[in-house]
Design a protein around this nucleic acid. Structure first.
Length: 561
RNA sequence: GCGCCCGUAGCUCAAUUGGAUAGAGCAUCGGCCUUCUAAGCCGAGGGUUGCAGGUUCAAUCCCUGCCGGGUGCGCCA
């Protein structure tokens, strides 16, 4: 509805310019706000206050001129000037009816837009190292990242979900040594236990499986262990494959699917790391010092230069990172979003600096980053820190097993990524209105229930009947509900652009609340057929929007509860 | 010490990118089921938006300085 109102205002501005009331070179950004208070109408604009200064008029006077210059239309019932110079719009019955119609006709497509216009965007998220089960932090990344993908898809982007994992570094070596120690019957308290070895129970399971000669198959590899505790290479391969499979199961339980698993080792084997290093040297952004090769990242805003190649000849982690992101660029992703934990924040400057130093015409702020803060898990009012399986942290799987997939996804996606999150297990498990997930799903199930009751009564409803009866939606509560439905497309658009899925969760909570209130105050299945058909149309529209919204969060929309 | 994030009701969090009287839920208290699912609804109390300045017609939002919490600051990833 906003774009239509903006058009009206734009026409009003044009005619005031033509009259000479406004300077001809003025190109105002027309901003339409949803009103917070119904007393201010349905939509409002601050345009008159913005233009007061350049026009040399007081805001209220200018507001009146703008209102007088608005073209005739059927959208708006009434326009008022209020406060310091706000222009408030009251939507007509015809326009609210058209909103319900739009929802019912567009169905699953309602709320989608075409901002992306089919362009390619890649979202990299989770990207956990294959050294253990996914923890709650990875869960947050998985939930937020996947929801961002869903939002971008709903905005017309061609989305690739990608998982990058480090299968080449020192921690993999550490993993192999830890498994080997377990194969040899050592425990973390024994003398020969590797320094900083992984201590969790899952290492024991892994070692047993290896010594058993099991074959593990994961998303991208299959490997059979050599059953030999002295074959460190075999242990390494087995351990990586085994833990990849574990993570695959975690992600599957969480309903997160990736299109691409990208192996760090491939950057080396395909010469991409060497190629990037050569380019950086050729471009003159490097120097040797103390036996190491440095990249002059300070040329691109870093606070100190960074070592690329260590004294021992190995590369530091950010070199393959740069090679990886250059590869993303070459794959044609105009837009890339990296969702990761805020503790890896320091990589951003380095990766962007490395990309700039390639002189490859990569835009300066590329790629985008979404960083999420820590998650604290609470149960019974106390912080939970340990899981049996992993030993030192709460795993995603534990959480899904305990509170279910829907609640876990909702809770992890419903908060702004950049604030710390407290995950209350008791709340997430509760099957009552305390729990926002059930609250929203219940609203959906209630609508389904109404239609079941309708069928039981031997009555029916068709889209045509519903649309024809829309003028019967005369109550204020009905109109409020419709206006809220009308806001959904904007919620999706803004959430997608800002990479902020939490606003969808908040919107749904709000919409469900409005519906529950309405449901309790007005009976839908009344005797008057026209009123009944109109209310059924509204209920179905609410159901559709809740269903679409939950879909964006990856949460199910049950028919009954 | 430096960088980044956060600070809003007792608790968990919003606030449509600078708009009107800062909103929900939980918790507390009081009401509503012979009527479409009570996994629900209605009502009440609860605030100097960490502090102090600045910009603006207008600041929770932008700027500066403090205070408090988190996190990073390796030739680890």
């Amino acid at each position: 509805m906003k774009p239509q109102i903006a058009e009206l205002l734009s026409a009003a501005v044009a005619s005031l310019k033509a009259q000479g009331t406004l300077p001809a070179d003025l190109e105002p950004r027309i901003q339409i706000d949803n009103t917070r208070d119904k007393a201010h109408g349905d939509l409002a604009t601050n345009l008159a206050m913005m233009l007061a200064k350049p026009a040399g008029k007081n805001p209220r006077e200018l507001a009146q001129l703008l209102v007088d210059a608005l073209p005739a239309n059927t959208l708006v019932e009434k326009v008022e000037i209020a406060g310091p110079g706000f222009i408030n719009f009251y939507l007509s019955d015809a326009s609210t009816a058209s909103l319900v119609k739009a929802v019912l006709e567009q169905k699953e497509a309602y709320g989608r837009n075409n901002d992306g216009a089919g362009r390619k965007v890649q979202v990299e998220f989770v990207s956990a190292n294959p050294t253990g089960p996914l923890h709650i932090g990875h869960g947050r990344g998985a939930a937020v990242g996947d929801c961002i993908c869903r939002l971008l898809e709903a905005s017309g982007w061609d989305v690739t979900r990608e998982f990058y994992y480090n299968d080449a570094g020192a921690q993999i070596n550490n993993l192999a040594l830890s498994v080997q120690a377990r194969c040899k019957g050592l425990t973390p308290d024994d003398a020969g236990w590797p320094e900083d070895g992984y201590r969790g129970d899952y290492i024991v399971d892994l070692a047993n499986s290896y010594m058993n000669g099991d074959t593990v198959e994961s998303a991208d590899q299959s490997f059979t262990g050599a059953k030999d505790a002295d074959d460190l290479e075999s242990i390494r391969h087995f351990a990586v494959a085994y833990l990849r499979r574990e993570q695959d199961l975690d992600l599957k339980a969480f309903a997160v699917d990736f299109d691409v698993y990208f192996l760090e080792s491939s950057l080396y084997s395909e010469g991409k790391v060497e190629a990037v290093v050569k380019t950086l040297i050729d471009n003159g952004y490097t120097y040797e010092d103390g036996g190491a090769l440095w990249l002059r990242t300070t040329d691109f805003g870093d606070d100190k230069d960074r070592v690329m190649r260590k004294k021992d000849g190995g590369y530091t982690y950010f070199v393959p990172d740069v090679a990886y992101h250059f590869d993303k660029w070459q794959r044609g992703f105009e837009r890339v979003v990296n969702e990761q934990g805020a503790d890896h924040h320091s990589t951003i400057t380095r990766v962007r600096a490395g990309l700039q130093a390639l002189n490859a015409s990569i835009p300066q702020g590329w790629p985008d980053y979404v960083l999420h803060q820590m998650v604290t898990v609470m149960r019974g009012g106390e912080e939970v820190k340990i899981s049996k399986r992993a030993g030192s942290y709460v795993t995603l799987r534990d959480l899904i097993d305990e509170v279910g997939r829907d609640a876990t996804r909702y809770f992890l996606a419903a908060r702004k990524a950049d604030s710390q999150l407290t995950f209350d297990i008791d709340l997430a498990r509760s099957q009552s209105s305390d729990n926002p997930v059930y609250y929203i799903q219940y609203a959906h199930a209630r609508v389904c229930s109404i239609f079941r009751k309708l069928a039981e009564a031997g009555q029916s409803w068709t889209l045509a009947e519903g649309l024809a009866a829309l003028p019967k939606l005369e109550l204020e509560s009905e109109k409020d509900l419709i206006v809220k439905l009308g806001r959904f497309p904007e919620i999706v658009k803004v959430a997608a652009n800002n990479h902020e899925p939490h606003s969808v969760a908040n919107y749904l909570r709000d919409l469900a609340g409005d519906f529950h209130t309405y449901y309790n105050s007005e009976k839908t299945l009344v005797d008057d057929a026209d009123v009944r058909n109109a209310r059924l149309a509204l209920a179905e529209a609410v159901r559709q929007v809740i269903s679409n919204g939950l879909g964006l969060l990856g949460v199910s929309a049950p028919q009954e509860m």
